[in-house]
């Protein structure tokens, strides 16, 4: 800030308060809706103040799900989402860090080709190869399995580049010292590289956890039975009843529960989140 202008300061606060209101309003409406009974949504306008059915809505969704639209109990879908988010984030980090290690610390025939193959995956999002990828997964018998949900998503050019960048900034002397002391490549990796990239791993984990939790198109293709539904996908199934009023109170309690884990991760690990976001776009 260059000079102190009262009018501009007030204006800035006003803009920010309106901005916060804009981002918070949909969530407020969802929270309020999840505290009301079914009858409050039949006519008039959606409620703006809390109701009395909070416990009933959430406990019904957690234990029974929504039978009318074939949605399983929420704890099951939350568990699936957690499994998916964790396997994708850990899987991506694991295979990317070892391939970056190979690319930076070894010289071997085919190194450039491998690097470019990984790079090209940036240009092949699921959206442009929906059907053939589905076919591959189907032929491998991976439909409706956790492996099918996660393995095809764990290749990552961004994570590999990030770790390559990190390794390139690590001083040569560390490796030379380790070699003089008789450490082999894997010992060097475990005892020096891994501890040195700890914060990068944590920052990347935050970003990838959100990425994995919020997957939509892929679970939509790969799961046909309800036992592998993720919560984000489950919401859609509930809202999707053709000839019937959607049960908004139940849908909105699911919406709230689907938001809570990733939003908490961002709020409590904000510094790592911002670091991860900015690093992965370099």
């Amino acid at each position: 800030m260059v000079e102190n202008r009262r009018f501009l300061n007030i204006l800035a606060h006003l803009v920010l308060i309106l901005g916060v209101a804009f981002v918070a309003f949909p969530v407020y409406i969802a929270l309020i809706a999840s505290t009301h009974g079914q009858n409050d949504f039949l006519s008039g306008v959606i409620p703006l103040l809390p109701g009395h059915d909070t416990i009933r809505n959430y406990s019904a969704m957690m234990t029974q799900g929504l039978a009318s639209s074939g949605a399983p109990p929420l704890w099951l879908m939350l568990g699936n989402s957690l499994i998916m988010a964790l396997s994708i984030s850990i899987g991506k980090i694991a295979i990317s860090i070892i391939s970056a290690f190979a690319i930076v610390y070894f010289r071997f025939p085919g190194r450039m080709i491998a690097f470019w193959l990984i790079f090209v995956t940036l240009m092949l999002p699921v959206e442009v190869r929906i059907l053939p990828t589905y076919k591959v997964v189907a032929e491998l018998g991976m439909l409706n399995t956790y492996a099918g949900l996660t393995v095809p998503l764990i290749a990552s050019a961004t994570a590999t580049f990030l770790f390559r960048q990190v390794f390139l900034t690590i001083p040569e002397e560390l490796m030379e010292a380790a070699r003089i002391d008789g450490a082999g490549p894997m010992k060097f990796f475990w005892d020096i590289l891994l501890p040195l990239s700890r914060t990068n791993i944590a920052a990347l984990f935050v970003i990838l956890f959100i990425y994995g939790w919020n997957q939509y198109l892929w679970p939509l293709l790969v799961t046909t039975g309800t036992d592998h539904y993720t919560i984000v996908l489950g919401i859609k199934r509930m809202a999707d009843i053709a000839d019937q009023q959607p049960e908004w109170n139940f849908i909105m309690s699911t919406v709230v529960l689907a938001m809570v884990p990733p939003v908490l991760v961002v709020i409590f690990m904000q510094r790592l989140f911002v670091k991860g976001l900015i690093e992965t776009e370099k």
């Binding site: 981002v23 959100i210 689907a258 938001m259 990733p262 939003v263 961002v266």
Partner: peptide
């Protein structure tokens, strides 16, 4: 809001 799924 970055953490909220687009579908949600």
């Amino acid at each position: 809001p970055y953490a909220v799924a687009p579908a949600v």
